[in-house]
């Protein structure tokens, strides 16, 4: 049994349950907090830092996606500082790899695109890196275009936590971090991939896509992963 908790978000007094995250409470009360690495049904990692919020009495900014609510918590989700930081983070992300919507299968269905619109990012103040990573088209059904990857690790978590295949992981560290399959081999040669497509469903951008789709054609099913994982949880 979980107890009811009183918290305040942006001046609104709200009821919440113990073990709920700030993000969960905010979403169920229609308060928008931007997220990227968060995906319902997967474990939270607090990595993209877009969902950072201010909490009274806490000197640091905390990620709403993994921070649990506590009694009397006073949360601010919008402030000039948060707004500026979110914009900078998004701009840095956009400069890191090639996010050219014009030729992207998910254009119009891309979380990164949505975020840029939501946060009003119309220009990027940092120089673009324009990396030229090879696209991995070795898989029968799917494509992996690292140039569009944001390193959110949603594919990796979907693969491990929902499918249990553990095909994806991160190679290297820092700015050289890179999503790989198995021993850094072609996806098509993967001995572990079950071709379930969950990673493709989980991907927020066009980095992972179903083969044979034209620009803007690919649409993802909303909430498919959370449904899968909640079914799994119930099954336990």
């Amino acid at each position: 049994m979980s107890n009811e908790i009183n918290i305040t978000i942006n001046g609104r007094e709200l009821k919440a349950r113990e073990q709920q995250t700030i993000l969960g409470v905010a979403r169920s009360n229609d308060i928008y907090i931007p997220t990227l690495c968060f995906l319902k049904g997967l474990s939270g990692v607090g990595a993209c830092r877009l969902c950072l919020v201010e909490i009274e009495g806490v000197p640091r900014l905390l990620p709403a996606c993994v921070t649990k609510v506590t009694e009397g918590m006073v949360v601010t989700t919008e402030s000039p500082k948060l707004k500026e930081y979110r914009r900078m983070i998004l701009e840095l992300l956009l400069a890191e790899r090639n996010h050219v919507c014009a030729f992207c299968v998910v254009s119009g269905n891309c979380e990164l695109q949505d975020l840029a619109q939501q946060l009003g990012v119309t220009y990027v103040r940092y120089p673009y890196r324009f990396p030229k990573y090879k696209v991995d088209a070795t898989h029968d059904r799917f494509l992996y275009d690292p140039n569009r990857c944001v390193l959110c690790t949603r594919c990796m978590r979907a693969c491990e936590e929902v499918e249990g295949a553990r095909t994806w992981n991160v190679r290297g560290r820092g700015i050289r971090s890179f999503m790989i399959t198995d021993l850094n081999q072609d996806w098509g040669d993967s001995p572990t991939c079950t071709t379930c497509g969950k990673c493709v469903e989980a991907c927020p951008t066009g980095a992972l896509a179903v083969k044979g789709r034209a620009t803007g054609e690919m649409k993802r099913k909303k909430n498919v992963l959370s449904q899968l994982s909640s079914m799994r949880d119930r099954g336990r």
Partner: peptide, 12 residues
């Protein structure tokens, strides 16, 4: 161990 995890470790 997952192959991908081993590769992740040796490159980290």
């Amino acid at each position: 161990l997952a192959l991908s995890n081993v590769f992740s470790v040796v490159t980290f």
